[in-house]
Amino acid sequence: MTSAALLKSVRLTHRYLGLFFSPTILFFAITGGLQMFSLHETTRGSSYVPPNILVHLAQLHKKGTLYLPPRKITAPNSAKPDGPKPEAAKLPQASPATPQPNSLPTKVFFAATALALAISTCTGIMMGWKYARRKLTVLLVLAAGVFIPVILLLV
């Protein structure tokens, strides 16, 4: 195989693999960026209730399924004895306060990375379309990249 033929086959393989996996890459970039700011979950003491779509998309991103396990309801433990408690258990131990690191810059950087990955994937799809001689093949591969994961999810 000549160098030009090898390069052409590598380019075609790259094009069609990229087109096939681009919907999945877009999905993971977008849902990962949203999860960076915990938009899919409620935090303790907060009145924020995430939209169901974000909860389900995060579940699909993390666990590969739309099935949400039922929440465990913890009942107050009424079986505790009301007897005397040791003095040591009443007083919290003094521990040196360690400052929490600021994670916002890291979150912003990773969210920017997710955005850049989404933009790069979209431009790759555009280039795959524009420079392809067989536009129908491009559409079929792209459609397969959308429908095959959906079918696998529903099976």
Rank of each mutant, 00 (worst) to 15 (best):
I125C: 03
G32M: 07
I148R: 02
Q35P: 00
A58V: 08
P69H: 13
L142M: 10
E41L: 08
I53F: 14
T74G: 08
H56N: 02
P149A: 07
T137G: 01
V138E: 00
T13W: 09
P101F: 09
L153S: 04
P76W: 09
F110W: 14
A29K: 12
R133Q: 05
A97K: 14
A112C: 12
I73K: 11
V138L: 03
Y48F: 15
K63H: 15
I73G: 04
S46H: 07
H40R: 03
I119F: 07
G45T: 12
V141Q: 00
A58R: 07
A75W: 13
L136C: 01
Y16P: 07
T42W: 07
G64E: 03
R11I: 00
R44T: 12
Y131S: 02
K80V: 06
P101R: 11
G64I: 11
L104V: 14
Q100M: 15
L26G: 06
K135W: 02
A144W: 03
K85M: 11
G32E: 01
P69T: 11
P96S: 11
V141E: 00
P76H: 13
L68I: 15
V55Y: 06
P105L: 01
L142T: 03
L140T: 07
A118T: 12
L104G: 03
I53T: 08
A114H: 05
C122R: 08
H40V: 04
S22V: 08
G33I: 06
P105R: 11
T98Y: 15
F147E: 08
L54I: 10
V55Q: 04
H61P: 13
A88W: 05
H61W: 12
L91F: 13
G33H: 04
L140E: 02
E87F: 15
P99Q: 10
E87I: 09
P69Q: 14
A58D: 03
I148C: 05
T74E: 10
F110C: 09
T123Q: 13
V146A: 07
L139A: 08
A143L: 11
H56P: 01
H56K: 14
